[in-house]
Amino acid sequence: MTTELKDFLYELKNYADQTHILKDKYEKLPDNEKTLVMQHTPDAHLSPLTQDKLVFRWLGSMQSELSNSKT
């Protein structure tokens, strides 16, 4: 694995952690503030809940692929 890929995975893990924090904060918002957040989301109207799932799926897929290539 190249240093660049290791760096990418490190940053992807950090991004996943941050999306999880945002998801937790989003879940605590009242409905009217959730609506406000969704009106301004830049990612094709993906909620923080969906973004969290997608990023962790991406990270898990990468980790699985890399662990399988080691064996």
Results as ranks from 00 to 15, higher is better:
His20Cys: 12
Asp7Ile: 00
Arg57Tyr: 09
Leu22Thr: 09
Asp43Cys: 15
Thr71His: 07
Glu65Lys: 13
Leu49Met: 11
Met1Arg: 08
Ala16Phe: 03
Glu33Lys: 13
Glu11Phe: 12
Leu29Tyr: 06
Pro48Asn: 12
Gln39Leu: 10
Asp43Tyr: 10
Gly60Arg: 03
Lys28Tyr: 05
Leu5His: 04
Ser67Met: 01
Thr41Ile: 12
Pro30Gln: 03
Lys13Asp: 03
Pro48Ser: 12
Thr3Ile: 04
Glu4Ser: 05
Gln63Ser: 01
Met1Gly: 13
Asn68Pro: 02
Val37Phe: 07
Pro48Leu: 08
Thr71Asp: 02
Phe8Val: 05
His40Thr: 09
Met1Glu: 06
Ser67Gly: 04
Glu65Pro: 02
Asn32Val: 08
Ala16Asn: 09
Thr41Arg: 04
Glu27Phe: 06
Gln39Gly: 09
Ser69Arg: 12
Leu36Val: 10
Lys70Trp: 05
Leu46His: 09
Val55Leu: 13
His45Asn: 15
Tyr10Cys: 04
Met62Thr: 00
Ala44Glu: 10
Met38Pro: 07
Leu5Ile: 09
Ile21Trp: 06
Glu11Lys: 13
Thr50Gln: 13
Pro48Lys: 06
Leu36His: 03
Leu54Gly: 06
Leu59Asp: 00
Leu46Asp: 06
Glu11Pro: 04
Ile21Glu: 14
Thr19Val: 14
Gln51Asn: 15
Leu9Ile: 11
His20Ala: 14
Leu29Phe: 01
Leu29Trp: 01
Lys6Thr: 06
Tyr15His: 14
Val37Pro: 05
Asp17Cys: 12
Glu65His: 07
Asn68Arg: 06
Trp58Asn: 11
Asp24Ala: 11
Lys53Val: 11
Gly60Ser: 08
Glu33Trp: 07
Glu11Ser: 13
Tyr26Trp: 10
Asp52Cys: 14
Leu36Asp: 09
Gln51Gly: 10
Tyr10Ile: 08
Thr41Asp: 07
Lys6Ala: 09
Leu59His: 07
Glu65Val: 05
Tyr15Cys: 00
Phe56Pro: 03
Leu54Ser: 11
Thr2Val: 00
Lys34Val: 01
Gln39Phe: 02
Pro42Tyr: 04
Lys23Thr: 00
Leu59Gln: 04
Asn14Cys: 12
Leu49Gly: 02
Tyr15Ala: 12
Thr19Arg: 00
Ile21Phe: 11
Leu36Ser: 03
Glu33Cys: 06
Gln18Tyr: 15
Asp31Trp: 07
Asp7Lys: 11
Gln51Met: 13
Thr50Lys: 12
Thr19Ile: 09
Lys53Gln: 14
Ala44Trp: 00
Glu33Met: 14
